[in-house]
């Protein structure tokens, strides 16, 4: 069991604070690091990977400081976000080189095992610069797994993958987590994290916004007030019947948009209630669109909550 400890960690670049006083502990199983682009996820992962020193606070692996400690890499596998590998090598040569750099007793066998795990043996003798994005990602995975690490850090591993590749990688990471490894991956897509992670850490604007299993995060996200933009055959009458119902918190008649701006209290109840009441009163609905469904607004709600 390997545990990553992040204790009151901040990191700033000049005047910009990328990571702001974050404390979290990441244990075995799959953990998702969720947050919008620019939230500080990569900075946080870089610090866990020992590529960046925290400005204050401590990043540890089973209690050992990570920064400037090459020995932690015996237990850590890293899948960086950046594309570049040694593109002039074949995947086999690349993974064997990684095994040798780890000082493994039988680099060839270790490389074959890792390449089999990511199902890349069929293309292992092609140069990396001929690979598709998904194949590169799997070659990176193989290089990270070659020394059988107990910790796996992946920065935006699903970026640019097609749905099939995504499913395969999810399956692989799930297996890694089930085997008792500490797997941490970052993503800005809630659905991705939800499907895979048993535990989610949400980071927004450098701050630790929320932590918990996906049900808890979902609840935080769906329990918040929702805003809708609605156009109908009779906006004023619709507004009158809606405000009488407990699921509605407020309504504004937007005359420039010629629409209703509705703030709902209970997301589920409102979405059931709106079409029913419209039908009952003979009002036709032309537009019903959530006006704040963007991830950023969900995140900003989480931060202020």
């Amino acid at each position: 069991m390997t545990v990553i400890g992040i204790d009151k960690v901040s990191r700033w670049f000049g005047n910009v604070v990328a990571v702001n006083d974050i404390t979290m502990t990441i244990g075995p199983g799959v953990t998702g690091l969720l947050g919008p682009n620019g939230a500080g996820k990569s900075t946080l992962i870089s610090m866990m990977a020992g590529f960046l020193a925290p400005s204050t606070g401590a990043v540890t692996l089973d209690g050992a400081t990570v920064w400037r400690n090459e020995q932690v890499y015996r237990q850590v596998g890293i899948v960086p976000e950046r594309e570049a590998m040694y593109d002039f090598l074949t995947a086999r040569e690349f993974v064997v080189a990684n095994a040798e750099l780890h000082g493994l007793p039988d680099p060839g066998a270790a490389a074959q095992r890792a390449l089999a795990t990511v199902e890349m043996q069929y293309a292992q003798d092609r140069r990396i610069d001929t690979y598709s994005k998904g194949m590169r990602q799997r070659a990176k995975m193989a290089s990270a797994l070659v020394h059988n690490p107990s910790v796996l850090l992946l920065d935006e591993p699903f970026n640019g993958m097609d749905p099939r590749q995504r499913l395969q990688l999810m399956e692989l990471l799930r297996r890694m987590g089930a085997e008792g490894r500490t797997v941490l991956f970052s993503s800005h897509i809630l659905e991705e994290v939800e499907q895979l992670a048993h535990h989610i850490e949400v980071v927004v604007a450098g701050r630790h916004a929320a932590s918990g299993d996906f049900r808890k995060i979902r609840r935080l996200m769906t329990d918040r007030p929702h805003r809708y933009l609605v156009r109908s055959s009779d906006d004023r009458r619709l507004a009158a019947v809606l405000i009488a119902h407990a699921s509605t918190a407020g309504i504004e008649l937007d005359r420039t948009e010629e629409a209703l701006r509705i703030q709902a209290v209970d997301f589920a109840a409102f979405t059931e209630f709106l079409p029913r009441i419209a039908r009952d009163h003979g009002i036709r609905l032309f537009t019903v669109s959530p006006s704040d469904e963007s991830l950023e607004s969900v995140f900003s709600y989480l931060v202020t909550a």
Binding site: L61, Q71, A114, A116, E119, S150, E179
Partner: peptide, 21 residues
């Protein structure tokens, strides 16, 4: 394609301090 899982990770033998490479 045969996919043999690499087996459970080794129990960590403790991480030596920096500089003892």
């Amino acid at each position: 394609t045969a996919t043999r899982p690499p087996g459970p990770p080794r129990p960590p033998a403790g991480i030596p301090a920096a500089g003892s490479g």
